[in-house]
Design a protein around this nucleic acid. Structure first.
Lengths: 127, 127
DNA sequence: GACAGGAAGTTGTACATACAACTTATAACC
DNA sequence: GGTTATAAGTTGTATGTACAACTTCCTGTC
């Protein structure tokens, strides 16, 4: 299973570009939270293919830091969280560019197509 | 970063197929240990793009269980470990087949090609 | 052979991840 | 409206993951 190896490589590269702004996992959660209307932990877990208990603990950290607020059936990114997300975004985009440049357009397309395909064939609850 | 999402999906699918024989990470380490001559923790970390401290703790667990023995400059899979690895192998292969069938040959090839490409462009120590 | 430098390995801390089991809140049914 | 079933969320436990700092071992140099 080199999928986790892939994840380790890219997580480290992205984390390096993020320069301590936040963890890649937190970025993913915040971003998803932002473009989900009426967000719940279960919804996040569903969308990101995470376990609900993982989301619970990740959200707990971000709540403690004031990045996120609200409970059952109404999770929101706070203004502070939104600001941090905006600050982190260019770093994220730099990481994306770095990866795309390293791979070339063809490999890049292939990678994302493959990731989408895996997501499509293993929908939540059907694993 | 959907790479970790991909890893979560496949890790769960593989773990499900493994039916409690061992964790996917342990399988990867044992397998690599087997086809490395003169294996060290640092060598494993290098090959699998893991941190040496991660390998240290994973190996510690497997040593405690008697799957692995030896220290500095001479890590070996024990007969017990070899046996478990052999038992787990068909489960692993079933997971591989399941993934390949779900994706189709083209997507499968694309996925592995992309994973190889990422590995090639982010060699150890150059991230 | 002594010493310094670097490689290998361990430990403290923190976050990521998930399964099992539990609690709590919501909704459906009577 | 009360009961129950289900969804949502939390907590216990275990593993995976990595950074920083430390210890330990080996090797090259004098």
């Amino acid at each position: 299973m080199s999928a986790r190896r892939l994840a380790r490589i890219l997580t480290r590269m992205y984390a390096e570009e993020m320069e301590g702004h936040m963890e890649p996992a937190q970025f993913g959660l915040l971003q998803m939270m932002e473009h989900m209307q009426h967000c719940t932990q279960a919804g996040l877990a569903n969308a990101l293919y995470m376990d609900k208990t993982t989301v619970s603990r990740d959200v707990a950290v971000m709540k403690k830091r004031g990045w996120v607020e609200g409970g059952r059936g109404g999770l929101r990114v706070t203004p502070i969280g939104r600001r941090l997300l905006a600050d982190a975004m260019p770093h994220w985009q730099r990481a994306q560019k770095r990866l795309r440049k390293a791979l070339g357009d063809d490999e890049w397309q292939a990678l994302f197509a493959a990731m989408r395909a895996v997501g499509a064939f293993f929908p939540v609850g059907a694993v």
